[in-house]
Amino acid sequence: MIRGFRSFLIDFSLVIVIGLAVYVLSFGDSFSTVFQLPNSVLHMNTIFLSILIEALPFVLIGVLIAGIIQIFVTEDHIKRWIPKNTFLAIIMSCFVGALFPACECGIVPIVRRLLAKGVPIHAGIGFLLTGPLINPLVILSTYMAFGNDFKIAASRMILGFFIAILISIIISVLFKSNQLKHTLEIPHIHTSSHASQSIFSKLGHTVTHAVDEFFDMGKYLIVGALLAAFVQTYVSSEALLELGSGQVSSTAVMMGLAYLLSLCSEADAFIAASFSNVFPTTAILGFLIYGPMTDLKNTMMMLSVFKTKFVLLFVLIVTVVVFSVLTLLDGFY
């Protein structure tokens, strides 16, 4: 079932209002002249637009895949595909995620649908972590960003995979239920009464659910992008960089920078490469591994899907595990 018409109108109106505001700030020269907007506001708006333009294609792909899962994947399929053994389920989900080209925004609606279909929380988190972090596009962009040097790309892939498994195991111990904020209403289109539906009818249902998912996720993406743009504009990165004078503190600073900047994982390596002459390799890896696992806009989207307590503990676990592993490996690099 689609959400109520009233809810749809609220979401659609929100997107329209924000879109108009963006248009006025970007192209309304007379508006800017009359109200004399500070340059920082215009700069924030430019960053906001760039984040949205960068993330929207992946969100659209994500909601389309979520619609396909909703219509074509049954609970029986999930039971057959996912191993019952917790560790094997985590390994499988991490491998599948590693092959899946998605960013940290586009992966959220996919994981929500998988969890609603019966995928255990530990497997869903494995997929959520590795998808944006070590998919083929990310590894290729990392390889190119660091001057065709495979060391950083390989370290990101291997360490990221190991850390994702470790975090998923911790999640499996702490949480047993799917931790979704709301129970999604799953239409039983695969029962015998619907078995005769044509492929075109199912594709229509897929698009319908994808649109519904987009408006569910879109408003939180907008809010997250706006917060990330505000931080990038008004929080001095130079002040943060000054804090990272030591080996340990530099890793913490780069992780914090990755969270606040909320860069797309397909492009973050080029920003990280610009810091390679300033910070040690472990700090650079902290930026490359931590950012795709959790950032500001991703947290906003997760808060719309998962229970608040789970999201806060998830961010804490990711932070502690990534920082601890990189600190232990500091001497190796």
Rank of each mutant, 00 (worst) to 15 (best):
E213T: 03
L159T: 07
F87N: 09
F87I: 10
I199Q: 11
D76R: 09
L263H: 04
P136A: 10
A154D: 08
I289V: 11
I169A: 13
Y290N: 12
G28F: 03
L263W: 09
F35N: 01
E75P: 00
H122R: 05
S26C: 12
L60H: 02
I53P: 00
I51T: 01
I317C: 12
T308M: 07
L263R: 05
V108Y: 01
K117Y: 05
I134C: 05
T46C: 04
D268K: 07
M300D: 07
L226C: 15
H190C: 12
L180N: 04
G147E: 05
T233S: 06
I222V: 13
F100A: 04
A153R: 10
Q36H: 12
C103M: 08
A210P: 00
I125L: 08
F275A: 04
E213D: 11
Q197C: 03
L166A: 14
L203G: 01
K307F: 03
S245F: 14
L115M: 06
F230A: 11
I90A: 02
F146S: 08
F100C: 15
Y143M: 09
G124H: 05
I222F: 03
I69C: 01
I169P: 00
L37G: 01
T74M: 00
D76L: 14
T251F: 13
G62D: 00
L20E: 04
T130W: 07
D295H: 08
L99I: 15
V59D: 09
P280G: 11
V231D: 03
S250L: 04
H77I: 08
I78Q: 00
T46W: 09
H209K: 09
T299V: 13
V96K: 00
F100Q: 04
F162C: 13
L37H: 00
L226R: 07
T130Q: 02
S168H: 13
I110H: 01
H209M: 08
K219G: 02
F200G: 05
A267K: 11
Q179W: 09
L114A: 11
L159E: 02
I90Y: 01
N39M: 13
G126V: 04
